[in-house]
């Protein structure tokens, strides 16, 4: 990708909701508009964090904004998400978050009680993840201009020495590992909005995945080639991005993908595919075949990784695509989602 100045290829006349949903449209916006202007000709495919070397120290840097409705939901809240999300972006880039700053956009009229709860939630999550919140900024906008509150967190992390994460290291035959059941967060939020009137015992899986990453680093080290936390757009989007970035294909086996009953039930009722549903505490890792079993064993001993399993493999064809195979021999291509998952009746 180097040598030639990159052309702006983003043709859409306006920003639409889909540009923020983490699927194809988001990728087009970033690759087609942000990257060519901001990152110049020698730009590499965007990972979850940027690497910088400062006086010999290898650091990683990332930022993320959090918008969620409702602000609180079973298993977590926006404050916890804001800390964990950024810690996780660093973790899957192979870095341990050290310090974080946070920016708040608050809607006038927001009860102090709610704000205080979120600040406490952030403090708790930061303590659990081992990151210091070093500073922040607050802006207030008129009532009606923000959905309660928005939070942006940015963090710097120290690169974990044994890990080198890059799509360029992914090889045919590598095993694809998932740390646990998928879709908990996305379905929890969908149900917590209350519009669908569904009830289920489900909790968001929001948590720091750093312990999982560290377990992988200890058990497999350099054999870990790629990681991602499959947030918006779900596992399908993360795997599609991988396949595009490494120019290979991913073959997944449907019955080896862990999904909780209630997530499956809600997906069947609403016509959704769990592979497209967001997660906030799971990890996908691509590991060299020889080290994959050891990697899974290490994950299973780590809290949050009890249901880790190998569910797929990197193959050569069809390059740039994700193929999901069923137990009875059928196969299908799973694409990135266009926009957010919407319930359907047909």
């Amino acid at each position: 990708m180097s040598g030639v100045a990159r052309k702006i290829r983003f043709q859409d006349a306006r920003v639409e909701m889909a540009h923020g949903a983490g699927g194809k449209a988001s990728r087009r916006l970033i690759d087609g508009l942000f990257a060519p202007i901001l990152f110049g000709p020698s730009w590499e495919p965007l990972g979850d964090a940027a690497r910088v070397d400062v006086g010999g120290a290898r650091l990683a840097l990332t930022t993320d904004s959090f918008v969620v409705h409702p602000l609180r939901f079973p298993g977590g809240s926006i404050g916890e998400l804001a800390v964990n999300g950024t810690v996780n972006d660093l973790a899957v880039s192979g870095a341990r978050a050290v310090a974080m700053v946070a920016g708040y956009v608050l809607e006038a009229g927001l009860p102090t009680e709610i704000l205080e709860a979120e600040i406490r939630a952030m403090a708790g999550a930061a303590a659990r993840a081992g990151v210091t919140i070093a500073g922040g900024d607050t802006k207030v906008v008129e009532h009606g201009k923000a959905d309660g509150m928005y939070i942006t967190t940015s963090a710097v992390g120290r690169v974990i020495p044994d890990l080198e994460i890059s799509p360029a290291r992914v090889r045919v035959g590598d095993q694809v590992i998932l740390s646990g059941p998928i879709g908990d967060h996305g379905i929890t939020i969908l149900l917590a909005r209350g519009e669908l009137d569904f009830e289920a015992e489900l909790r968001s899986d929001t948590r720091s995945v750093l312990p999982l990453v560290e377990a992988l680093a200890r058990a497999a080290g350099g054999a870990v080639h790629w990681m991602r936390d499959p947030t918006r757009g779900g596992v399908a989007t993360a795997l599609n991005e991988l396949s595009l970035d490494c120019g290979l294909a991913i073959a997944a086996e449907e019955e080896r993908i862990p999904v909780r009953d209630a997530v499956r039930g809600a997906c069947e009722l609403l016509g959704l595919d769990p592979l497209h549903i967001a997660n906030e505490g799971q990890l996908i890792a691509v590991v060299a075949r020889d080290s994959a079993e050891a990697a899974v064993a290490a994950l299973r001993e780590t809290p949050g990784g009890e249901y880790a399993s190998i569910f797929g493999e990197v193959i050569a064809h069809p390059a740039g695509a994700v193929v999901v195979k069923s137990a009875y021999g059928g196969s299908r291509i799973v694409d990135m989602l266009v926009g957010d998952p919407l319930p359907r009746i047909c």
């Binding site: 069809p318 695509a321 193929v323 196969s331 291509i333």
Partner: peptide
């Protein structure tokens, strides 16, 4: 289906 066919899965 389309990409499956296009690249000869």
């Amino acid at each position: 289906e389309h990409r499956k066919a296009a690249v000869g899965a």
